[in-house]
């Protein structure tokens, strides 16, 4: 990974129905770093994530990826970034494997097989199960498994632990730690406390 790999924001501002959620927001995330966004409900955490993904346009300011504004280099940025929002993007009519195959077809592939990814999120053997019979927690883990199937250095996760039980949370914390050790970057929002072993974790509280 080239050394200037980083996600940076320059005096970012977001207004939602006449309320300034945040303004003059400057931060940057470099490899091996994780950023946790905290704040009570409705303080703009999700809006900030969607602005970082380029889904939503900020009212002021810019988001920079490797020194370039993401609007200019949108395809390179999406090559290296994956976003898991509130909705898992898992289609009920398709089997787990079909869902994952579709996700990987959309972006860059990490070469890991679907079976391995499912084993890592302790869903081994669920390849041909129809997604609509899965529980919310299992569907969440399928969405998180798609992270492993993609070769993206930046993970943007919107409350990844919702509907996950304690053991799954532990499993996913290890996955995240390994991703950070391999030089990955993670930005996430969460209400649960997260302990990522020996990697530099920063916290920003939006409602402070």
């Amino acid at each position: 990974m080239s050394d200037i790999v980083s996600l940076e924001t320059r005096n970012l501002e977001c207004i939602r129905d006449d309320r300034v959620l945040f303004s003059q927001l400057n931060f940057s995330v470099k490899p091996h770093q994780a950023l946790i966004l905290e704040g009570d409900n409705g303080c703009g955490k999700t809006s900030l994530l969607r602005i970082l993904c380029g889904i939503r346009l900020p009212d002021q300011g810019q988001v920079m990826w490797n020194g370039l504004s993401i609007q200019e280099s949108i395809s390179e940025y999406y090559q290296d970034m994956v976003y898991v929002g509130h909705l898992d993007g898992v289609k009920g009519d398709l089997s787990v494997a079909e869902n994952l195959r579709m996700c990987t077809a959309l972006g860059s592939r990490s070469g890991m097989s679907i079976e391995d990814a499912l084993n890592k999120v302790s869903l081994s053997g669920y390849e041909d199960v129809r997604a609509q019979v899965l529980s919310a927690g299992q569907r969440r883990r399928v969405a998180l498994a798609s992270l492993l199937l993609k070769r993206c250095s930046l993970w943007i996760l919107d409350e990844p632990f919702t509907a996950l039980d304690r053991t799954s949370r532990g499993v996913f914390e290890n996955i995240m730690s390994r991703h950070l050790n391999q030089g990955g970057m993670i930005i996430l929002t969460s209400h649960h406390s997260i302990n990522l072993t020996d990697s530099s974790v920063y916290v920003i509280n939006l409602s402070a």
Binding site: S75, Y78, M81, G85, H86, G89, K91, G92, L106, G107
Partner: peptide, 21 residues
């Protein structure tokens, strides 16, 4: 249905040209 279950976001966030998809 893709809008409701969030797959549309993945579509928009793919590096490929959205118009082709």
């Amino acid at each position: 249905s893709d809008f409701d279950d969030g797959f549309l976001e993945q579509l928009v966030l793919s590096p490929h040209a959205l118009s082709v998809l």
